[in-house]
């Protein structure tokens, strides 16, 4: 069913229920991303963070739903709206924030910035500034998994804007041809910068974009973490069983601009407000937890804890030093 206001498919025939623990995990993890991004926005305004800064606010259910379905060792790869994916991968908030601030304690020693971050230990393969790049790179990570036969699945995210790049289909073809264990997750937030999907895509049902390669696709409500998790469970199992790639189109929404310098002229304030009010992924979980009898106090504690982690991360990032000038010349070659 498609709502007229938001255009987001809500409701699935049956929405798989979460246990209370799962709801709490989803709430805590999504809230950490939300608070982290809010803080990043503030720091950008203060000039602590420079360049491009793309916030994930509104899309939290996508990466957390997938994360909840993933197994240790599965890899994450995405493009440049990547802070949420890093936190979901288990990377330390203070080192992510330090990187945003261009400080030496950042994951890339301050040399990558918001769009280019990696962590081998967390199995996070970027953080890519070229929007379509995650597709072949994530397929390549899956190629390594298949080569080794280690049962890992590559979880590869990109936006609906990137889904119009040719390299995405080159990757789809090879992934299907070689039955690579990769789940392609298109985060359809409806706007590629300022271009609404119907102005850029001849086929706006992006779950069909793999059909030419016989890649099974599913279009889901990416604002409901339970639905994302259920779809990811199915997709990951499909991949792990050696059936090849799987495509998920997660319909989602970003509340903030494309980057911090967004003119906000291409959509109405009412549209944004309506999505926030009716479909917020965190609020949905919060309401269910309250209905389930979890106290406001407990949820406030979780929020307070998230704020504390983020505040500490900001303090760390601001107090941390810039990279040593000698770092200009390091890490060019291994």
């Amino acid at each position: 069913m498609v709502e007229e206001s938001g255009g987001v498919t809500t409701g699935a025939p049956t929405i798989p229920a979460f246990t209370r623990d799962q709801e709490l995990t989803a709430f805590r993890d999504m809230l950490l991303i939300r608070r982290f991004e809010e803080k990043a926005g503030q720091l950008y305004g203060m000039g602590v963070i420079g360049g491009f800064c793309h916030l994930y606010i509104g899309q939290e259910a996508v990466v957390i739903g997938v994360k909840m379905a993933a197994r240790d060792g599965d890899q994450f790869t995405t493009s440049y709206r990547d802070h949420g994916h890093m936190l979901a991968s288990g990377m330390e908030p203070k080192r992510v924030m330090a990187e945003l601030a261009g400080k030496r304690g950042g994951y890339s020693k301050g040399k990558g910035g918001s769009m280019h971050m990696f962590s081998r230990t967390a199995n996070f393969y970027g953080g890519h500034g070229i929007v379509g790049a995650p597709a072949p790179i994530g397929a390549g990570v899956a190629f390594a998994n298949a080569y080794r036969g280690d049962g890992r699945v590559s979880l590869t995210f990109f936006g609906e804007g990137a889904s119009n790049q040719g390299q995405v289909y080159e990757a789809f073809n090879m992934a299907a041809l070689w039955k690579l264990p990769v789940v392609f997750i298109v985060e359809n937030n409806r706007y590629a910068m300022g271009t609404e999907i119907s102005r850029a895509s001849a086929q706006i049902d992006l779950s069909k974009r793999g059909a030419a390669f016989a890649i099974p696709g599913k279009q889901i409500d990416g604002m409901d973490v339970r639905i994302v998790k259920a779809a990811a469970d199915e997709a990951i199992e499909w991949c792990r069983n050696g059936n090849g790639p799987y495509l998920i189109e997660a319909q989602t929404y970003r509340y903030r601009g494309h980057s911090m310098s967004d003119p906000a002229k291409y959509r109405s304030k009412e549209e944004v407000q309506k999505m926030r009010a009716d479909h917020d992924p965190i609020e949905q979980v919060r309401m269910r937890l309250i209905a389930d009898g979890v106290s406001e106090d407990e949820l406030k504690k979780i929020d307070a804890n998230a704020r504390k982690i983020v505040s500490d991360a900001a303090d760390f990032a601001m107090a941390d030093k810039e990279p040593d000038p000698a770092e200009l010349w390091t890490d060019v070659l291994a």
Binding site: T77, Y125, I137, V141, F143, Q167, E170
Partner: peptide
């Protein structure tokens, strides 16, 4: 590979990131 230079270069890079 298929005739897909952009794609297989990217697949190669991803495999190399992952240790091959």
């Amino acid at each position: 590979t298929p005739i897909t230079e952009y794609g297989f270069a990217g697949v190669g890079v991803g495999a190399a990131f992952a240790g091959l």
